[in-house]
Design a binder for these strands. Structure first.
Lengths: 204, 204, 204, 204
DNA sequence: GATGAATGAGGGTTCATTCAT
DNA sequence: TATGAATGAACCCTCATTCAT
C-alpha cells in the first residue's frame, strides 16, 4: 500500500535540498543527483514530485519569496504608525534568517538566471513590485506625494544593493551596517520633508 | 609567415562574443561552441587564444570592468570641484554604453557565478573597492568625516541596486530614473550637511 | 525497484569489452564509445559503473592479473614435489587461455602504458613480484642457495620475453616452443646442480 | 633564397625530440605540438619533413633500431672466436647507451603500439629476426645442431625479457644483473655441450 | 623553408530524464 | 511510492593536419 501524504514532505525536502545545494556549490553545480542525494532520496523522486528540474527551481524560488514575505508581513502586523511600517518593511528584508551570506548567495544565483528564464523573471518581478507597493503604502502618510515614488524606489534600491553586496563582498555586509544605511536614508528623507514643511510655514 | 597579430583581434572578438552570448542566453547557455559560432570561428580557436573557458570568462569580466573604469576615469578627468567629481563617478557607473538592459544582464550573470568562482569573485571585489575608494576621495571635501563612509556606501549601494534592478525588472530602469535617484540621494546628504552647519552656527 | 545486481554483470561486460577492444585496435583506439558499443550499452554506462576511463583500465588489468594468478594457483594445488611446482608456475604462465596472440596483445598494450601510469605500474609490479616469489619458493628445495635468485630471475625473464615475442612476432610463439624453452632452461639449471653435487662428492 | 641541406638536420632534430617526448610522457602524450616544441620548431615543420605523424614515428623506431644494430655490429667486429661473438651480441643489446630506464621505455611504448600498426610491426619483426640470425651464426660453431635454434631463442628471449623488465620494474634492472643472467645462461648451455661431449667420448 | 592560425572530428565526461521493476 | 539502471545529447577540450603568408 502506498504511503499517503508524502507529497508535501518530499517537496519540502527537495526544496530545502535545492537551496542548500545552490548555497554550497552554486547554481550550475546544483544537479538533480546532488539535490536528491542531499535530500536522502533517489534521483527518480525529483521527477515524481516535480515535472522537471525547472519546476523544482521555480518552486524553490517561490519558497524563498514566501519566506521573505512572511518576515515582512509579520513585522507589518506588529507595527504602529507609518514610520514603524516603513521600518517593518526594511527590517523584514534584512531579517536575520534571510540576510546571511548563504541566503543571499542563493538569491543571487536565481537573479543571475532570471533574465533568461521567463518563469524565474516573473517571480522576481512580483517580489520587486510587492516591495514597491508595500513601501508606497507605508510612506504615503509621511512623504509628500511628489517625492513618494522616488523615496520608495530609493529604499527598495538600497535594499537590493545591500543584498547584492552581502553576496559579493568578501566579508559580506553586517546586518547592523545594512540597518544603519537604510534607516539613515529614511531619516534623511523625513528630515527633508520637515525642512520643507518649515520653509512652507515661514512663507505662510 | 602566417597571419600575424591575430591575437588581440581574436581575443577581442571572442570577448565580445562571450558578452553577447551571455546577454542573449544567460551564463549557462554561453557554451564554447555558441561563443565561437558567434565570433565566426571554430571551437578550436577559443582554446588557441585562451587556456580554457574559465580564462575566457575571466578575461571577459576584466574587460567589462575596464570599460566601467574608463567611463569613470574619463568623467573624473573633466570634473571641476568635489561635487562634480562625485557626479562623475555616479554618471560613469550609469554610462549609456554600460547601463543598458543587455550590458547589465551580463554583469548580473557574472555576479551570480562569482560566489562559486574565486577568480571572478576577486575581480568583483576589486570593482567594489575601486568604487568605494573613488567615492571616499571625492566626498571627503564636502561631507563631514563621521558621515563619509556611510555616504560613500549609500551611493555605492544605490548604484549596485540600480544595476540589479535594471537587469531584473521587466521594463528595466531608465537612465533618467537612475540619475534622479542617485543625485537626489547626494542632494539629501549635502543638504543635511548644510543644515547641520547652520544649526552649529546658530548655536555659536 | 530497478533491475538489481546489474553491477557485477555490467562490470564484467565492460572489462571483457575493454580487453577485446584493446586486442583488436590497440590501446589508443580503445575509446569509451568503442568499448561501450562492444559491450552493447551506451557510453553513459561506463561512467555509471566506473568513475572514469582510468578506473576501467585499472580494473581490466587487475582482471587479467587475476586470471593469470588463478591459472598458476590451480596448477600449484595439483603439483607434487618441488619440480612439479616449478613446472606448474611455468605452465600457468603459458596457460592456453592466456598465452594467445590476442591475450598477449592486451598485456603488451598495458605494459606500454605502465611507465606513464603509476596505477598500472603498481599492478605490473605486483605481478612480477608474485611470479618471483612463487619461483623462489618452488626452487628453494632443488637449487643451491647461491643460485636461487638467479634461477628464479632466469625463468621469470624467459617467461616475460616469451610473452613479448608472442605479441610481437608475426607468427607468434607456439605454446610448445615456449614450454620447450622454459623447461629446457630448468633442466639445464638442475643438471648443473647435479653436476656440481657430483663434483663435490668426488672431492669428498 | 632557401636554406639548403636542412632536411637531414631537421629530421634528426625531430626524431630526437620524438624519442625524448615518448620517454618523458609516454606514447599517447607525444603529440606533434609537444615534439615540435621540444625540437624548437613550429608544428608545421613536422609535416614539412614527414608526410604525417605515423611517418615520423616509423622513422623514429627505425632510428632506434639502427642504433641497436650499430652497437652490435661494432662489438662483433672486435670479437675473436665464436664465444666472443655471442658475447658481443649480448653486450650490444645491453649497451649502456640503450639499456637504460629511459631508453627501454621508448622501446616498450613502440612495442605496445606495434600489434596494431603494420608498419611498426614490420620493423620489430626485422629487429627480432636480425638478432636471431646473428645468434644462430655465432653459436653454430659451439653448439650442437639440434640445440642451435633453441639456444638462440633462449638468449634472444632472455634479452627481450630483460628489456621488458628494465622498463617495468620500479628499480629497473641493473646492467650487471642483466649481463650475469645472460652470460650464465650461455655458460649453462656450453657446459651442457661439454658434458654431452664427454659422455659421448666415454661411450666411444 | 618556416610559421602559427585555423579547422573540426573525436576524445572523456556529465547531465536531465525515462522506465522497468 | 521509490529505485537506480540506462540513455544519448551536449559539454569542454585536444589533436593531427592544412594553408595563407
Amino acid at each position: 500500500m502506498p504511503k499517503l501524504g508524502m507529497e508535501p514532505i518530499r517537496r519540502r525536502q527537495l526544496i530545502d535540498a535545492t537551496i542548500a545545494a545552490i548555497e554550497e556549490n552554486g547554481f550550475s553545480e546544483a544537479t538533480v543527483s546532488r539535490i536528491s542525494a542531499r535530500a536522502g532520496v533517489s534521483t527518480g523522486v525529483v521527477h515524481h514530485y516535480f515535472r522537471n528540474k525547472d519546476d523544482l527551481l521555480e518552486a524553490t524560488l517561490r519558497d524563498l519569496a514566501n519566506t521573505l514575505r512572511r518576515e515582512v508581513v509579520e513585522r507589518l502586523n506588529r507595527a504602529r504608525g507609518p514610520r514603524e511600517r516603513v521600518e517593518a518593511i526594511i527590517d523584514g528584508n534584512l531579517a536575520p534568517g534571510l540576510f546571511t551570506r548563504a541566503g543571499v548567495t542563493a538569491w543571487l544565483a536565481f537573479w543571475g538566471e532570471a533574465p533568461n528564464s521567463p518563469r524565474l523573471a516573473r517571480i522576481q518581478d512580483i517580489i520587486i513590485r510587492r516591495l514597491h507597493g508595500n513601501l508606497i503604502h507605508a510612506l504615503r502618510p509621511i512623504v509628500a506625494p511628489e517625492r513618494l515614488a522616488l523615496t520608495a524606489d530609493g529604499i527598495g534600491t538600497l535594499l537590493d544593493g545591500l543584498w547584492l553586496r552581502a553576496a559579493l563582498t568578501r566579508g559580506g555586509v553586517t546586518l547592523d551596517d545594512a540597518r544603519r544605511l537604510t534607516h539613515d536614508y529614511l531619516e534623511l528623507c523625513l528630515a527633508a520633508e520637515r525642512g520643507k514643511a518649515n520653509a512652507d510655514r515661514e512663507i505662510a
